[in-house]
């Protein structure tokens, strides 16, 4: 039986939802290939139980003392060595920054093609796939010809769901890494945000050019706080210096998937839209009823955000008896 390896992105054992998306997609893909679904865990993290819940029948624990933390060269080399040893039919990961980075490292080392950010794959001798371009504004149909297929799946494209429960066999693979791989290991971390972050917040209240100034974000901050959410912004706002780039939602900023995205004074250029389109619901507040954001949103208020946003906060407080 051939093997489909799913590389689980994790940070010192913390498993992002993207890795579960990868297993979810991998389950169907493995079935279509008549392959066994096997997870790859780099380092000592114990992720066997969750890999099993999502249908992995084996876990390849790739160990080396250098793999206690993340480093793209070390991870790439370790996974490449495992691939040489196991000879899988395919290797996949989630198309996050880290997932794509590791896959690119593996591809470079094995001199194999790698197709990033697929939405669907048809397996065969040659694979056919649809992948995203322009952050999702365009789709590309491609073929992939290689002895071992390397792909990543676009993050947020599907919902992670457990299934095919298995009790995975754990197979330890000792990677052979020399000191040169330490050059790209993480040496330190600076924690800037605790609790909900832009990419995990259930509510994102976001402002665009229409907000008008740095100070005018205060009512958006207030609303976000009342809802336990985070403030986001468009590229125009960052370019004006009103908000830090870490707040930017979009193709070159953060890609979000909240329960509701409240887009205030944002026109909805494709750069921005692709960062917001995975939101489950979108409410656009804009004076222009023809704005792209309004016509694409499920809900809209055609009015001045400077009046509407404080009114929402006031109404929430009223209902909470505050």
């Amino acid at each position: 039986m051939s093997i489909l390896l799913v590389v689980l992105e994790h940070d010192r054992g913390d498993l992002p939802v993207g890795s579960l998306e990868a297993l979810t997609v991998g389950r169907d893909l493995a079935a279509s290939m008549d392959a066994s679904l096997e997870a790859v865990v780099v380092g000592d993290a114990d992720l066997t139980a969750v890999a099993g819940e999502y249908g992995a029948t084996a876990v390849h624990q790739v160990t080396n003392e250098m793999l206690a933390d993340y480093g793209p060269d070390a991870w790439g080399e370790a996974v490449a060595q495992l691939v040489r040893s196991v000879a899988p039919a395919a290797v996949m990961a989630v198309g996050t920054d880290r997932g794509n980075e590791v896959m690119a490292q593996v591809a470079a080392r094995l001199d194999l093609p790698f197709v990033a950010n697929c939405l669907s794959v048809e397996a065969g001798d040659t694979w056919s796939m649809t992948r995203v371009q322009w952050g999702g504004s365009l789709l590309e149909d491609s073929t992939l010809t290689a002895d071992t297929k390397l792909v990543s799946f676009a993050h947020h494209a599907i919902e992670a769901a457990p299934g095919g429960a298995a009790s995975p066999t754990v197979k330890t693979f000792e990677a052979d890494l020399d000191h040169s791989y330490t050059a790209t290991m993480i040496t330190d971390r600076v924690v800037l945000a605790s609790g909900v972050t832009l990419s995990t917040a259930p509510v994102v209240v976001s402002g665009g050019r229409g907000v008008g100034s740095e100070d005018a974000f205060a009512p958006l901050e207030e609303l976000a706080e009342l809802l336990g959410g985070r403030v986001g912004c468009s590229r125009a706002v960052t370019n004006n210096g009103w908000r830090p780039h870490s707040d930017q939602v979009g193709q070159t900023g953060t890609r979000i998937a909240p329960e509701i995205y409240i887009a205030c004074g944002i026109s909805g250029a494709i750069q921005h839209w692709v960062g917001a389109m995975a939101s489950k619901n979108i409410l656009a507040i804009n004076t222009d009823s023809d704005a792209n954001m309004v016509t694409k949103a499920g809900y809209a208020v055609i009015a001045d955000l400077h009046e509407v946003v404080p009114a929402i906060s006031a109404e929430i407080r009223r209902r909470r008896g505050q």
């Binding site: 993340y70 050059a183 790209t184 290991m185 993480i186 040496t187 330190d188 971390r189 600076v190 924690v191 800037l192 945000a193 605790s194 972050t197 832009l198 990419s199 995990t200 953060t254």
Partner: peptide
């Protein structure tokens, strides 16, 4: 997402 990773190259 939560901050910054530091690398020394």
């Amino acid at each position: 997402d939560t901050g910054v990773e530091v690398y020394k190259l």
